[in-house]
Design a protein around this nucleic acid. Structure first.
Length: 208
DNA sequence: GACCAGGCACATC
DNA sequence: GATGTGCATGGT
């Protein structure tokens, strides 16, 4: 089955997913770091804490102490390391872009991706999530579900690298922000509902 | 109580 | 380049 057809099947089954769940680009970027290897449900609690404490802006979050920040994001797990990663990102945002999100989003996507990857704590998936969902750049996001689902359906090798999998999708799809947005969200929906780690395939899977 | 969740860096071979 | 490990909460 071709990637485009799979997309159509998923869209028909599940409908639009309205991603990313976040009110502002900055909130999306923070969420992208907090959700690393963590369920979104837990991330929501952390973001709620940040909002309640009124620190969910680049400058205020950067000024928040490590101890306080870690305590606020505690529900998202790995709170010590994620507090550091957030600070690393905030330092980059401040030093390189003067906390100007508009200037950030007007930059060249390829350059920006490289800059993000230089931040300790931001890997390929987090970088692409930020590019796609916060800055509206056509970056195809690859995650654990993508690997699992597409290798089980024999479309990619099980040991393919991130770049290989991303290349596969980019070569088969038009470079369209809306499409990339919806496709990744639908993959996550499918993964959560049907493609569990220990269950090789599911009879109810819309892909058969 | 085990397993899992929208990763990443780092050590070691 | 591949493989193993630490990081941690909360839901099922």
């Amino acid at each position: 089955m071709k990637p485009k057809l799979i997309y159509q099947k998923l869209y028909t089954s599940f409908g639009p997913q309205h991603w990313w769940p976040g009110e502002t680009p900055f909130e999306v970027m923070v969420g992208a770091i907090l959700t690393q290897n963590t369920s979104w449900q837990n991330v929501e609690k952390a973001i709620k804490n940040l909002k309640k404490a009124r620190v969910l802006t680049p400058d205020k979050l950067y000024k928040t102490s490590h101890k306080k920040l870690a305590a606020l994001i505690r529900p998202a797990g790995y709170f010590n390391i994620k507090a550091k990663r957030l600070k690393n990102f905030l330092k980059f945002l401040s030093k390189s872009y003067n906390n100007n999100i508009k200037r950030l989003s007007s930059g060249d996507a390829k350059v920006l991706r490289e800059e993000l990857l230089l931040v300790n704590g931001i890997g390929p998936e987090t970088a692409d999530s930020i590019l796609l969902y916060a800055l509206n750049k056509p970056a195809f996001v690859v995650d654990a579900y993508t690997k699992r689902i597409f290798s089980r359906h024999k479309l990619i090798k099980e040991n393919s690298s991130y770049e290989e999998i991303q290349g596969f999708f980019k070569s088969k799809l038009s470079s369209d922000v809306k499409l990339f947005n919806e496709y990744h969200a639908l993959i996550v929906k499918l993964g959560k509902d049907f493609c569990l780690k220990r269950k090789p395939r599911c009879k109810l899977c819309p892909l058969g």
